[in-house]
Design a protein around this nucleic acid. Sequence first.
DNA 1: TCAGGTCTGTCCACTTGTGCACACAGGACC
DNA 2: GGTCCTGTGTGCACAAGTGGACAGACCTGA
Lengths: 254, 254
Amino acid sequence: MDARTSNATEIDSRPINNLLRRLSAADFALLAPHVMVESTAANELLYSPGDDVQVVHFPCGPSLATFLVPNEDGRDVETILVGREGAVGGIVSEGYLPAYTRICVKFGGPFARIHVSKLEAAKQRSPSLRHVFARYADCMLAQIFQSTACNAIHSIEQRTAKWMLAAMERTGDESSVPLTHEQLATLLGVGRSYASRVLQSFKAEGVLDTRRGSILVRNREGLRLRACLCNEAVKMHFEEVLRGVYPTEEREAG
Amino acid sequence: MDARTSNATEIDSRPINNLLRRLSAADFALLAPHVMVESTAANELLYSPGDDVQVVHFPCGPSLATFLVPNEDGRDVETILVGREGAVGGIVSEGYLPAYTRICVKFGGPFARIHVSKLEAAKQRSPSLRHVFARYADCMLAQIFQSTACNAIHSIEQRTAKWMLAAMERTGDESSVPLTHEQLATLLGVGRSYASRVLQSFKAEGVLDTRRGSILVRNREGLRLRACLCNEAVKMHFEEVLRGVYPTEEREAG
DNA sequence: TCAGGTCTGTCCACTTGTGCACACAGGACC
DNA sequence: GGTCCTGTGTGCACAAGTGGACAGACCTGA
């Protein structure tokens, strides 16, 4: 929270985060004095279970955060991805409650931050601002519901393809995802050898290529054909709920 | 919404729902004029995807609601159970948004209902009331996160035991759960024959017994040993977050 | 009391995913 | 140029879960 401050008041200097960019000028002005942007590295923890949630983090540009649920055997389970379409920390709880999940930076980059108390104060002053955040909270909820269903019934192959597409949409990188097989396996909650095998089958079909530490996408449409429709379902909800807040060309979810 | 009204002002005549029972007298008084209690049958739909969410439903006594995520192939996936520890509809979204999931009455019984606009108006007048609902929203979120992780890594056997325990805790019925194998299979997102086999293995171990249309619990502790710890994790979060709102002996979750 | 519908138990062949093991490849560092 | 470490490809035996099939049990209603 002590990096360079960016108290932007003009649209073009706003952080590259859809939630912040699409606020009315008046609403953004309420937040601007309290918003700070700083760079964050991959694997940095934003919250751990039990932490007091006091700061809202907005991934900007290619930054990506993920919610991890700790498990009794020590291995965390990844649930949802949040990129520049949203924010993490105190969105539903409104802060000052112990965090339930671990929130971790998946892909590093800039994050805009604001103290929960400042955001809540601004919401008190502006019903439209409160409304935007309530709507986003609902979208995030939809994302988690979909993820629950997805984990229950979709195959690892479908979920692998889904995850790759969701990550690419958020980071803007159309050709590569910086992930080892081990990391992919962990985030899908499967064994490493099976994850390798799924990637191998995609490779055989010309959809992807593997490099040490990253996965290259050769055929995005092929990936889409192999993914479940969970991303699309959530995206439609984002569009419907945040219509007027997000313009059509910037909608992103999954 | 047109059944007999129960404008209770005294604690003892409040609906048997923890969220409502544990409000301060002043906070409950704000809601009471708008609360109606009516009976609901199993399988009744409270919301379907796309519906305008305008009424908050509080399961009372043994009533149980469930959130279903529709799937491309037509079979819904059950996600979380909500009983008298909570409420469904507009908890996170604050209403007037299209519902993302289907919300269905799993076990029938009384539900208290209040219009979202009345609840939101009361929240505007009472920060403590707003606070209780924000806290409950956070608990519900934790429940869904845990469910996502559970579906990713726990076996059908563990999840079957977990579900049975969660249902029993909420309904108060310690010995039986009214469910066919088919229904159990559907809510776990697995095939019927496999669900039967799991029940059969529990039966062989003396944990439960099967009847046509219901499952009898013979050894609750045995069930607990075979369940994952997801229920307990969520219960702890409920207890921590709603401490002071819910007394210890009434905490329930899962 | 018989018929018909639903629910239950079980069989089987099959697919998906596990967990371990091991050889080898790609970089990084000296 | 070698060393070491991490990451990758693959083989294998096994466990978990699928989906269709079918006989029999239970309940209800005529």
